[in-house]
Design a binder for these strands. Structure first.
Lengths: 187, 187
DNA sequence: ACCTGAACACCGTTCAAGT
DNA sequence: ACCTGAACACCGTTCAAGT
């Protein structure tokens, strides 16, 4: 992934500790300050900057760890369910994920579009995988683009964590999947 | 709308000037500083705070002006097109709107959920109007909730203003409308 | 090599003082 | 009533100095 230029062991330890603390802090609040993160991690601010040259870079590093989890879930779900169910499940998990890590979702949303490309690419890969599986099964209309569907999913990250978000997520997912199913060969 | 407690004429002039400048500045960049806005408006910072007790309040005031425009568009479109076409047109206009005022859309996105309630209510009203008209015409499946559809539309504000956003908007709108049309009585 | 904390230029917000 | 700008407590970021 990121190149690992063999850090000294204490440097490596610092880096991990910063990431861990940043993960906690950003999950709790999207605008946790770098100073507070450095203090919680027990390092000087400049050490944070040594490892992550800018605030955005740190947020992105945390983001990447999270994205990997969600992305890896797609093939697992496909192994044990029909493609269309796997898609539904995956979307619900993404929503749940976005809700438990609400601060993080907000922090990600505030990032400049371009700089999240790597993570975005991975998510697009997972969507592509799910869509193509559904397509091959004849469960959805063919030709829907992964990037379009990612845009359509955006709302899953924008729900109110208080209250009935799970119900709302289900309804949104129904709306989206119904859209995909329209014009499917096998229906 | 907002109560108008009869401001002195120079106060009123200041308020208008601040709003005007803030509109320009926030359109250009979502994180234009209040200090810079005050300077451009030719008033002291504290004057900005007198009229808008917090940054959020100012952003929201600008936001409200913008929302009104989009909301008023819905009945106009319904008057001169079939409901389903009015819906499509409206969605495209919303997307175009979000793109020309990208900074503003970003600033709005950063607002706490709850505080935009008034504006949110108006938008929900416009969506409700369009959905019910389509429903009455038998063009879409009945029972789709306005708040769910608003969530599904979220992506329209999250497109990349550089490049082919209009194409992407059209594809996203197609995806959404196809979802609505599935199970419509008259198809 | 890697770390530190004081220092810099900002930010949103407040407040004593002016007319 | 309404306005002003200096002041406050922060922020992200940098840099000279330490081991």
């Amino acid at each position: 992934m990121t190149e690992t230029p063999v850090l000294r062991s204490n440097a490596r330890r610092n880096r991990d500790r910063i990431l861990e603390v940043a993960h906690e802090a950003l999950t709790a609040s999207a605008d946790a300050s770098l100073n507070s993160i450095a203090k919680s991690a027990g390092v000087g601010i400049a050490t944070v900057y040594r490892h992550f040259p800018t605030r955005e870079e740190l947020v992105l590093a945390v983001y990447r760890m999270e994205v990997a989890q969600v992305v890896d879930l797609a093939p697992e779900l496909l192994e044990r369910s029909a493609p269309i169910d796997a898609l539904r499940d995956w979307l619900l998990r993404v929503a749940r994920y976005g809700m438990t890590k609400h601060g993080l979702a907000a922090a990600m949303g505030a990032l400049r579009e371009g700089c999240a490309d790597e993570a975005r690419g991975k998510i697009l890969g997972a969507i592509e995988l799910l869509l193509r599986a559904c397509e091959d099964a004849g469960a959805i209309r063919p030709g829907v683009r992964a990037d379009d569907f990612l845009l359509a999913m955006t709302g899953l990250f924008r729900m109110d964590p208080a209250g009935d978000w799970e119900e709302q997520a289900r309804r949104l997912i129904d709306l989206l999947v119904t859209g995909l199913e329209a014009g499917a060969p096998r229906r």
